[in-house]
Simulated scan of single mutants.
Amino acid sequence: MITSKHFIVSTGCLVLAGYFSTALTQEFAVGEPLGANNQSGDFVEMSSNVTVYGSFHFTESCTFDPDRNLILAMNRGNDGGSDDGFVSLINPDGSVHTSKWIGASRDGLELRDPIGSSIAGNVLFTADNGSREVRAFNLDTGAPISAIAIPGEGFINGIAGRDDGASYLSDTTQGIIYEISSDGSVSIFAEGMPLNRPNGVALDNDGNIIVVNIGDSAVITYNQDGQVIKQEAAVEGGNDGVVVLSNGTKYVSSVRFGSVSRIDRQGNAQIIARGIPSAASMCYDSRQNQLVIPMNPNNSLAFIRL
C-alpha cells in the first residue's frame, strides 16, 4: 500500500539556521583546475597538451551540468562516515577538469558520504548518507546552501531535485521515498510495494517521479500525489541508476549485474550494454548524447554514446 505524503518533520528551517551559523564562522573555498606551482612559486594551470584521467574515490553517482559542459562526480572518500567526501569536475571525454572542486578544503564544509546527486535550477543536491542529510550546494560557486536532516535510520541513496528547491529521496533499506519541500520539511511520499529496496530516482518532463528498485527489475512511475501511474521493468534487476530523456526514453543501470537497459515509450526493454562492473547511479550528458556510469569501488567512469 502506498502511504501518500505522510508528515514527518517540519524543522527544516531550524536545521538550516543551525547550519548557517556554523558555516558563516569559516571560509569556504572550492578547488581550482589542475596545475602546479612553478619554480618561481606561481601557480600555473596545466597546459592544454596534457590529459589526466582518474580523480575518483568510490564514485557512487554523477550528474551533468550542461551550462559548463562538465560532469560532477560524487566521491564517497573513505568508508565509515568520515568527513572526506568530495565532488570532482570531469570533462565529457572523461579527463579531469578539477580533481577536488567541492572538498578541496574542509573549511566551512561537511560532506561525509555523498551517494545520489542531482542538479535542478542552480543547485546541486546530494544525499549524504554519512550524516543522513540532504545537502544543497550553489552550482556556480560550490558553496553550501543547506543541510536537511532525514529522520530515522537506513541508507539514503538516490535523489532527484526540482527547480523550486524541493527534492525526492530514496531510503533503500527502509523502503521509503521521502519528499523534502523547499522550506526543509520532510514527509513520506511513498512506501510499501511496489517499492523493493528503492534506489535511483529521476523526474520526467511532466514532473512524475520515477524510481528503480535494487530488489527487482521494477521501474515505477508516481505522479506528484504519490500514486503509481505506470509500472515497467528493466531486463535485469539489481538496479541503481535511472535517467529519463526528454522524449520519454528511460535508461536503467544494474549495479548487481552490470547491464544498462533501455525502455522505450511503449515499455519495451532491451539491454544496450553489459559487463560493466558495479554500474551505479548514472547520469545523462545531454550535450554529447552519452550516458556516464560511475563504477563504485573500481574508481572509474564508463561512457556509452547513444
Rank of each mutant, 00 (worst) to 15 (best):
V123T: 15
R106F: 01
D204Y: 09
L169C: 11
D140A: 14
A149S: 14
I119L: 06
A190S: 00
R112P: 06
G192L: 10
V134C: 03
S181V: 04
A166N: 09
A143C: 03
D113S: 15
I145A: 02
D171Y: 04
R132S: 09
D163V: 13
I156T: 08
F155K: 13
N205P: 03
L169N: 06
T141Y: 10
N157G: 02
N157V: 06
I148M: 14
S187Q: 15
F137D: 03
A202M: 09
P198I: 06
Y168K: 01
P144Y: 01
Y168Q: 09
Q174K: 15
G121F: 00
D171L: 12
Q174A: 15
T173A: 13
G154I: 08
D206P: 04
G207Y: 07
P151R: 11
I180D: 07
R112T: 15
P198D: 08
P198W: 08
T173R: 14
E191P: 04
R106D: 14
S167G: 04
G158H: 08
P144F: 00
S117V: 04
P151H: 02
I115K: 14
N199M: 08
E133Y: 11
N205R: 14
G184H: 10
A149G: 12
R112E: 13
I115V: 13
A202G: 02
G116R: 06
E110L: 02
A120G: 12
M193W: 09
R135V: 09
G121Q: 12
M193L: 13
A149P: 12
L111Y: 05
P151I: 01
D183H: 10
T172P: 00
G108C: 08
